[in-house]
């Protein structure tokens, strides 16, 4: 009983895992500081930084005016002064307001100037919460085409903590996308190790082994893929689920190893299909493992529309388990 209670007590949510990473990195390295809107005593719109202002003070948990370009720009400047800033976007959609800083200043800096800008820009992404067109975005593809930025999107509490620590310790800029649907999802609670650990950037994880087809995905869609794999198993189709964890740089080897085994691939993501990162993954597989494929690669993604708000529309917009099952069934019969 007591052991069970202690075990329970150590279980953390995805959100708490992110907070633990921030706290431990701030304890470990006094050069790490946080900057963003309402992140101080208020603890942030989603309460990710709750308690950190009390622990580290206003000099290391800096509240700013509503100025995303200034937040990212100032983080970059402070990074050049030897600090390790972690900037929060209140919703990741507002990262577009800092687009110029990220794509023209930050991403190109090392290449042009010979030294890096080690900042982390993190924030809640993703839909399924009826947030409408401006609070549901998944902007990875906008930045994937801007060489010099790393892009990370964890799907478990363990990875969220380990990857965020790795991002903070990374010598280059990292965009760290946190799917808000996962923040407090009970299914994601887990006990984390007491000791310090990192999850390396650039390494995918196989979440479920299978032999008939591979679903390559990341973020909240990992759970859609796993649920679909359960359904497919009932129909005798064995799906392997690869969780990229890092979007840029892509762990090509893990993806190819899986496709060489299953000979069929679905690429699944929550952003719109056209120009989405799925096209990049799909092209990479085709270029490097064409002879291993028994069928075309199918992209399962959101509609090519803005994210709509009303539940029937948003549900239709997002990839659902049914869509994945249908795609997988088609693919297996190919």
């Amino acid at each position: 009983m007591t052991a069970e209670v202690t075990e329970q007590a150590r279980q953390v949510t995805f959100l708490e895992a992110i907070r633990e990473a921030l706290r431990e990195e701030m304890q470990r390295d006094e050069k790490v500081f946080l900057i963003g809107e309402d992140i101080g005593s208020y603890g942030g719109a989603f309460k990710v930084t709750e308690g950190l202002h009390a622990e580290f003070g206003a000099d290391r948990v800096i509240d700013t005016p509503i100025s995303e370009a200034a937040i990212v720009g100032a983080a970059a400047g402070a990074a050049m002064m030897g600090f390790k800033p972690v900037a929060e976007m209140q919703f990741i959609d507002f990262i577009s307001c800092a687009f110029d800083q990220l794509t023209n200043v930050v991403s190109k800096w090392r290449y042009r100037m010979g030294f890096g800008v080690p900042i982390v820009v993190r924030g809640p992404c993703g839909g399924g919460v009826r947030g409408g067109p401006f609070h549901s975005g998944n902007p990875e593809a906008f930045f994937a085409n801007s060489a010099g930025l790393k892009i990370v999107e964890p799907s478990t509490a363990y990875d969220a903590k380990g990857l965020l620590k790795a991002a903070i310790r990374d010598p280059d800029p990292v965009l760290f996308f946190e799917h808000k649907f996962l923040y407090r999802l009970p299914r994601l609670r887990e006990a984390l190790p007491d000791e310090d650990y990192v999850v390396p950037i650039g390494k995918a994880a196989v979440r479920r082994e299978g032999t008939d087809l591979t679903i390559v995905t990341f973020g909240a869609m990992v759970y859609r893929a796993l649920d679909a794999a359960d359904r497919l198993a009932e129909a005798g189709i064995s799906a392997e689920v690869v969780d990229l964890r890092t979007i840029v740089p892509l762990d090509v080897e893990t993806v190819l190893a899986s496709v060489r085994k299953t000979n069929r691939a679905i690429v699944l993501h929550e952003a719109s299909r056209t120009g989405g990162y799925g096209g990049e993954i799909s092209a990479t597989i085709t270029e490097k493992a064409f002879e291993w494929l028994d069928a075309p690669i199918i992209r399962v993604a959101s509609l090519d529309t803005p994210v709509p708000y009303s539940p029937p529309l948003e549900d239709f917009y997002l990839p659902q388990v049914d869509d994945i099952v249908e795609a997988a069934t088609k693919l297996s019969a190919y």
């Binding site: 299909r273 199918i298 992209r299 399962v300 993604a301 509609l303 090519d304 529309t305 803005p306 709509p308 009303s310 539940p311 029937p312 529309l313 948003e314 549900d315 239709f316 917009y317 869509d323 249908e326 795609a327 088609k330």
Partner: peptide, 24 residues
């Protein structure tokens, strides 16, 4: 009424309907 799901495909452009998925 609530909007119907498939109407999500309309009105991205003046003409035409967004494609649901090329494999459907």
């Amino acid at each position: 009424p609530m909007p119907e799901g498939v109407t999500a495909l309309l009105d991205v452009f003046e003409n035409g309907v967004a494609e649901r998925a090329p494999w459907l």
